[in-house]
Design a protein around this nucleic acid. Structure first.
Length: 271
DNA sequence: AGTGCGGCCTGTCCGC
DNA sequence: TGCGGACAGGCCGCAC
């Protein structure tokens, strides 16, 4: 499910329900996520009040009094607010139970996600310490991408999807951004001019910002129950459209594989 | 240091 | 209807 817009939509959705609430209890039904959920999680976080609900890249940060719960939704994770009377289903692995009878419930069928605990500044955590800038912040700009792609022989698609260069650009939005910028996903990152880096960064910001806005439109329903963020309402121009006509030139959208991931692009419009 | 795989999992869909 | 295989929105860790 989650690329950055979905994670941010989730953050905005859960924050008003859980911020400043006290965690009464934690139930872990399955510890086996990408990394084991710490055995001491329950004892570490019980009776603590949530200080803030933040996001860094695709990591959600639940700030408590003595540390931070780090949550990653992986490929199939979702968080929803329900009540203590809502029966847990097959892949509901973790419940954070609050004093107001509400539960923050993590569902993750593929279990690529993570729930971790750190008592230190989460920015210094191994998983977060070497992350690149946030895509919507000003320190991610054309010059930054230009400088960080020099001498790189990897494809531009793999570079913008590299979280050590910029966080939050997943497979879908990488494809969409490259289409908007007219750049071939296979192009070597080091061969892009500064002007084209500027154009690509603008496209990434535009696509992500637009998507967050659309996620927001379905926020209520999302939190209420169905778990579907604004994702499918999203107007995707190339992703998942192999064989369909390009929105710009009408030629057939092509699907290839890069780094074991599907790439969709227009061979006419993207050079 | 940068690049490119393997692997972690379950669910779904498609062709036979 | 059942079965095998491909594929899925992420990303660390490891070889080279």
């Amino acid at each position: 499910m989650p690329e950055l817009p979905e994670v941010e939509t989730t953050r905005r959705g859960i924050e008003p329900h859980i911020n400043h609430q006290t965690i009464n209890d934690v139930v872990v039904r399955n510890h086996a996520l990408r990394w084991p959920i710490p055995k001491q999680l329950r004892q570490k976080i019980r009776k603590q009040q949530i200080q803030a609900v933040e996001r860094r890249g695709k990591y959600l940060l639940i700030r408590l009094e003595t540390g931070t719960v780090i949550i990653h939704l992986g490929m199939s994770g979702s968080l929803r607010i329900c009540t203590v009377s809502t029966a847990a289903e097959k892949h509901d692995h973790v419940d954070f139970i609050f004093g107001n009878n509400k539960i923050l419930r993590l569902r993750d069928p593929r279990r690529f996600g993570a729930v971790l605990w750190t008592a230190k500044d989460p920015a210094t955590h191994k998983l977060l310490s070497s992350l690149g800038p946030e895509p919507l912040e000003d320190d991610f700009n054309g010059l930054y991408l230009f400088e960080h792609s020099r001498k790189r022989t990897a494809s531009i698609k793999s570079v913008i999807m590299n979280s050590h260069i910029v966080v939050g650009v997943g497979n879908i939005y990488a494809c969409e951004s490259l289409f908007l910028a007219g750049i071939n996903p296979k192009r070597k990152a080091g061969s892009l001019s500064l002007a084209r880096c500027n154009k690509l960064v603008s496209a990434i910001k535009k696509v992500l910002a637009q998507s967050i806005t659309q996620g927001g439109t379905t926020l209520r329903d999302f939190i209420r129950e169905n778990g579907e963020p604004g994702y499918f309402a999203q107007k995707l121009l190339v992703y998942g459209r192999a064989g369909e006509p390009c929105a710009k030139c009408g030629s057939s959208i092509k699907q290839i594989t890069q780094q074991q991931r599907s790439t969709f692009y227009c061979t006419q419009c993207q050079k």
